[in-house]
Structures are given as C-alpha cells and as structure tokens.
C-alpha cells in the first residue's frame, strides 16, 4: 500500500470509531463498513481497528474469519455467491453452478484472471421460495435459470 493510501485508510477508520464507538461492541459495524467500502479488510485495517478499540489484532482476525461476509484479501469486481442450501439445491442449483463455470471459465472458489468475477457458494439466503438464488456483491437475484444467468452476466459487462 502507498503511504497516502495508508493514511487515508487510517483516517477513515478513525472516523468510523468516532461515529460508531470505541467499545468492542462497535467492532462488527466498523468491519462491515470497511468491507462494504473496500470489498475486503486488510491486515493493516485489522490492526488499526484493533489499536483503536484496544483489543488484540488476532482477535479482530478471529472475528473476520468467523463471519462468511468478511474477507481478508482483495475481491473481484463482481463477487458472485450462489446459495447452495437445500431448497435452491432442489431447484437445480447444480445446473446454475455449471452455467457460471462454463461462461466464466473458472471453478467455484476461483477468480477470473482479470479479477472481474469470483464464484463462491454461500449458505441459505432466505430466498427458498424463489430458488435458486444468489448474491452479486450485495444484490439478490432469484428464480435463476441458465438463460437468466447468461443475461445477468451480459448486463454486468
């Protein structure tokens, strides 16, 4: 990271702590803000948060790695997370997954070379009556069909 990026990030985290509080109970909201804005929570960000909340960096890491929505590394521009839980599974999740893999040329758990798309599975989204469902970044898509998947991917380009 460039020095200017570091100081911008530090400033941003300081502001978050000022508005959300410096107690440990503010940890999740702070991490959520960082995740939302940057798409990931870097080692530096974790340590800065730990310092301001007066907890150990490894405890922040423990929290970050516990929750599925937090990530430690850079993420693709479009993070595609397909629900793999039972109701979506019954509604041809496998077919949707294959479509994605074929269209993007990567497997689930991988990122395209241009870092534009990443494929992941996720647990139940609460869209069981409209499965298969997925999230692209934070947006929900439901009632997926292979055809619809192709359309959605085209609309992202």
């Amino acid at each position: 990271m460039l020095a200017s990026e570091v100081s911008a990030l530090n400033e941003e985290i300081q502001e978050l702590v000022q508005t959300l509080g410096n107690g440990r109970q503010a940890l999740m909201p702070i991490l959520q803000h960082i995740q939302r804005k940057h798409g990931y929570i870097s080692a530096h960000a974790q340590q800065e948060v730990a310092r301001l909340l007066k907890i150990h960096p490894v405890e922040v890491d423990g929290v970050v790695t516990f929750y599925a929505f937090f990530r430690k590394g850079r993420r693709a521009k479009y993070n595609i997370r397909l629900c793999q839980t039972i109701s979506c599974d019954l509604m041809n999740k496998d077919g949707i997954a294959k479509t994605f893999e074929r269209e993007l040329g990567i497997k689930f758990g991988e990122v395209t070379k241009d870092e534009k798309y990443s494929l992941e599975f996720i647990s139940c989204l609460g869209m069981c009556d409209q499965g298969p469902a997925m999230l692209i970044n934070n947006e929900v898509y439901t009632n997926l069909t292979p055809r619809k998947v192709v359309d959605i991917l085209n609309s992202l380009k």
């Binding site: 440990r24 999740m28 991490l31 995740q35 909340l53 929290v63 929750y67 599925a68 937090f70 647990s123």
Partner: peptide, 22 residues
Amino acid sequence: LGSGAYVCGEESALIESLEGHR
C-alpha cells in the same frame, strides 16, 4: 447487522456477535 453466520441465530451467540466477538 450480522455478517453471515448461521450460529448467530442461537441467542447467546447472537449476543456474543453484538458484543463484537466470534
């Protein structure tokens, strides 16, 4: 907000999460 953990539906895990823990 939660951040994607089924177990946080368990009330004491939920409280832990609110307090900023795993």
